[in-house]
C-alpha cells in the first residue's frame, strides 16, 4: 500500500494539526478554486457553491485532529467536498424552498459579495467563447453526478483514477467505466463543436 508521506499537502495538513494557521491558509489558497469548480458544476449557483466550499474547508479544519496520512490530501479534501455537496442536494430535495443564500448565522447583515471576473475578451470572441462554454458547461452539468465528478476530478490533472475511486467510493474499473461513459455522452452532445473545430486554441483570443 502506498504511503503518502511525500505528499506536500499532507505535510501541510500535519502542520495544521499542530496548530499552524499559515499551513491551513496555504491549503485553502491552493485548493479553493478546484473545490469550488467541482461544487459549482453540481449546485449551479455561485453563491451557494462558495458557501459550501467555505464549509468544506471548515470541515477540514475541524477534522485536523483526526487527520492521518492514509491518502493524498486532495483525496481527503474532495471526499469531504463531495459528501457535503450530496448532503446539500438531499437537503434541497427535502426543502426545495430553502436556500443557502442566508449564509451562516451572524452574516445576515453583510453586504452581498462581489465576484471578480478575471476573463477578458473582445465582444465577438467573448460571444463565441461564451456560447461554447455554456454548451460545454450544460453538457457537463447534465451528466449523472458520479460521472460528472469523475470527469471533473480527472480534469484537475493531478488526481489519479485510484484517487477518484477513493473519493467516489468505487473500484478502479468502475472509475474507468464512469469516465468512459461520461465522455461518450459529452462527445455525443458536443459533436457539432468537436467537428467544427470551435474548440481549437486558435479560436481563442
Amino acid at each position: 500500500m502506498a504511503t503518502h508521506d511525500s505528499d506536500p499537502d499532507a505535510q501541510l495538513m500535519l502542520r495544521v494539526k499542530r496548530g499552524d494557521m499559515d499551513a491551513f491558509e496555504a491549503l485553502v489558497d491552493r485548493y479553493k478554486q478546484p473545490v469550488i469548480n467541482v461544487i459549482h458544476r453540481t449546485l449551479k449557483d455561485a453563491t451557494e457553491a462558495e458557501d459550501l466550499a467555505q464549509n468544506v474547508f471548515i470541515q477540514v479544519y475541524k477534522a485536523r485532529d483526526r487527520y492521518q496520512v492514509k491518502a493524498k490530501f486532495s483525496t481527503f479534501l474532495f471526499t469531504i467536498a463531495r459528501n457535503l455537496t450530496l448532503n446539500e442536494i438531499r437537503r434541497r430535495s427535502r426543502h426545495p424552498a430553502d436556500s443557502m443564500d442566508a449564509g451562516p448565522p451572524g452574516e445576515e447583515d453583510q453586504p452581498f459579495r462581489q465576484f471578480e471576473d478575471n476573463r477578458t475578451a473582445s465582444p465577438p470572441d467573448a460571444a463565441l467563447r461564451g456560447e461554447l462554454e455554456v454548451k460545454v458547461a450544460e453538457a457537463v452539468e447534465a451528466l449523472p453526478e458520479n460521472q460528472r465528478t469523475a470527469i471533473l476530478l480527472c480534469q484537475q490533472g493531478d488526481v489519479s483514477y485510484e484517487e477518484i475511486g477513493e473519493v467516489l467510493g468505487v473500484s478502479l474499473s468502475a472509475v474507468k467505466s464512469l469516465i468512459h461513459r461520461g465522455r461518450e455522452t459529452l462527445k455525443q452532445v458536443l459533436k457539432p463543436y468537436l467537428q467544427t473545430g470551435a474548440w481549437r486554441e486558435d479560436a481563442r483570443p
Binding site: M21, F24, E25, V28, D29, K32, Q33, I36, N37, I39, H40, R41, A46, A49, E50, A53, Q54, F57, I58, R113, Q114, F115, E116, D117, N118, R119, R129, L132, E133, V136, A137, V140, I151, Q155, R183, L186, K187, L190, Y193, L194, G197, W199, R200, E201, R204
Partner: peptide, 24 residues
C-alpha cells in the same frame, strides 16, 4: 483530445476575493 480541450476551457467558477480570509 478535442473533448479534453473543451473541458479544459470550462471557465473557473466565480470566487470572492475574500474567500480565504472568510475561511480563516
Amino acid at each position: 483530445m478535442r473533448l479534453s480541450g473543451l473541458l479544459d476551457r470550462l471557465p473557473d467558477a466565480p470566487l470572492s476575493s475574500i474567500f480565504t480570509a472568510r475561511v480563516l
